[in-house]
């Protein structure tokens, strides 16, 4: 590379790299350091290194709001898994249907999937609160027909509906991308050679659309596991997820080392999960 090209590279690369280093890499490292420090009353930290925050994570406490952190960890990951599975079950046939339409219908349906993706997140969650609330639309309709009211708001069901609702486009779009690329003559070939529909799906369709399934699952699972808005608005703080304990530590509780430790463990678990997932995919591919 000539000196001039090196200079160009430095000019192009350094502003973005500097911004990412200072405002993304450093804060992430900082959270790792803070997780080994001690809490100071009224916010901030005392610069004494120790494992107190991590020990607290693995010992049940009698917090008024959140009783057992391990349960909330497990719940967050379990709900993220459930949401991913439900989204997959709805989106796979939907993406298949869209991919089999003539081009004009196809782009119209895809556009319909894209609109919620571009609309404001809070607005979409509020829409469900408006429907499920005790004095909300669903209960107005039910009582108009003299039916018993449903107490759905602040329950796990309400939270799961919200989680699936905000995640669905993230599953449909990557699935569509990989089903749309599929060569459908392979399926005819499979059927001609005597395979039944189930075998064709299991042996041809499923493996070939695996990249879409993986991409969609990662795009749904990670944000859901870290959700804060959905359990707060639709769960009313009664069904807490990881996001709620994190916000609690950095908000009212002012326990920064503990919040940092939760973040670090959360990140490690996510990374392990993703690596595990990609391993499975590679084995499937072989």
């Amino acid at each position: 590379m000539t000196t001039r090209r090196k200079a160009y590279l430095a000019i192009l690369l350094s502003p973005g790299a500097l911004w990412l280093f200072v405002f993304f890499v450093l804060p992430t490292l900082l959270i790792l350091i803070y997780s080994f420090l001690e809490r100071r009353d009224g916010g901030g930290v005392i610069w004494n290194f120790g494992m107190a925050a991590y020990l607290k994570l693995f010992s049940p406490t009698n917090d008024s709001y959140i009783n057992d952190f391990l349960i909330i960890f497990l719940r967050s990951f379990w709900w993220a898994f459930l949401t991913t599975v439900i989204c997959l079950l709805i989106s796979y046939p939907l993406a298949f249907y869209i991919a089999r339409q003539p081009p004009s219908t196809r782009s119209f349906l895809l556009f319909l999937v894209m609109i919620p993706f571009w609309t404001n997140f809070l607005v979409r969650i509020y829409a469900w609160k408006f429907i499920l609330n005790n004095n909300g639309l669903l209960n107005s309709i039910l009582s108009a027909f003299n039916l018993p009211r449903l107490a759905l708001i602040n329950t796990p069901i309400a939270v799961l509906i919200g989680l699936v609702y905000v995640s669905l486009p993230f599953m449909v779009l990557p699935l569509y991308a990989s089903i749309g690329k599929l060569d459908f003559s392979l399926i005819e070939a499979g059927l001609d050679l005597g395979a039944n529909y189930f075998q064709v799906f299991r042996r041809i369709f499923f493996p070939l659309t695996m990249p879409g399934i993986i991409a969609g699952s990662v795009l749904v699972f990670i944000p859901v596991a870290g959700q804060y808005v959905v359990p707060t608005i639709l769960g009313g703080g009664k069904v807490a997820m990881l996001g709620n304990i994190l916000a609690q530590q950095f908000g009212p509780d002012l326990n920064w080392p503990f919040g940092s430790a939760i973040s670090v463990v959360f990140m490690i678990l996510l990374m392990m999960g993703i690596l595990f997932y990609f391993r499975i995919e590679q084995e499937e591919a072989i």
């Binding site: 804060p27 990662v218 870290g226």
Partner: peptide, 16 residues
């Protein structure tokens, strides 16, 4: 920054 959950990025920036 795309993959990391936004809440983790948020709290780390708060500390920073």
């Amino acid at each position: 920054p795309i993959i990391i959950p936004d809440i983790v990025m948020g709290v780390s920036l708060l500390l920073f």
